[in-house]
């Protein structure tokens, strides 16, 4: 079940990431065209950067599901299959640890409990927490930066989901399966 949700979510992440990659390309081309006809648009650079950042974190989360990650396998490749299997589970656990840590860091940063506790009153929230995340503006887009920063909790949640599914979904040790 968890495996199916993880696969489904990874497909959505990859599709969105591909659309964002196309968006980056179009925005940069738009930049070249508008500047050369003397009608430059000031918000394009910032939007293109955010599109790339979202593409990155969506793609990085999906990579945990598909196993598309750069790792140094020089030592593990030489080990017997059974040991490799144990190590793979240890790596799964470490990746899950990372995902949970990211979730916790996002919790500290977005402080959702304090925001709700203050009835979504940003001024009161800031006074109580010294946390100014909801006051930060974007440079040119006219929206609050917190909307863009949502990439991080989305990434943390996706990574946690995929890591959990990997860990629970792995087949048992080869010899156990044989018994």
């Amino acid at each position: 079940m968890l495996g199916r949700i993880s696969a489904f979510w990874a497909r959505i992440e990859i599709t969105l990431a591909a659309l964002l990659a196309a968006g980056v390309t179009l925005l940069i081309l738009l930049n070249v065209v508008t500047r050369n006809i003397g009608a430059a648009l000031f918000w394009v650079d910032e939007l293109a950067i955010y599109a790339m950042v979202w593409m990155t974190f969506l793609g990085a989360s999906a990579a945990l599901h598909y196993g598309h990650t750069v790792a140094i396998t020089i030592m593990t490749d030489r080990l017997p299959a059974a040991v490799q299997h144990v190590i793979a589970r240890l790596v799964d656990a470490i990746v899950l640890g990372f995902a949970l840590a990211m979730l916790w860091f996002c919790w500290l940063w977005f402080a959702p409990a304090a925001l709700i506790g203050n009835g979504f009153d940003v001024e009161a929230f800031q006074g109580a927490t010294f946390n100014f995340i909801y006051a930060e503006p974007t440079a040119t887009l006219g929206v609050k930066k917190a909307w863009v920063w949502l990439a991080m909790p989305v990434f943390a949640l996706g990574a946690t989901l995929h890591a959990l599914a990997n860990m629970l979904g792995r087949s048992p040790l080869p010899q156990e399966a044989a018994e």
């Binding site: 790339m52 793609g59 990085a60």
Partner: peptide, 21 residues
């Protein structure tokens, strides 16, 4: 074939850029 290409681009680029992050 364009969508497939953007998909491969997104997968490969996000791998590298995430390492940079």
């Amino acid at each position: 074939a364009l969508f497939g290409i953007f998909k491969r681009t997104a997968v490969n680029a996000s791998m590298i850029v995430f390492m940079i992050a």
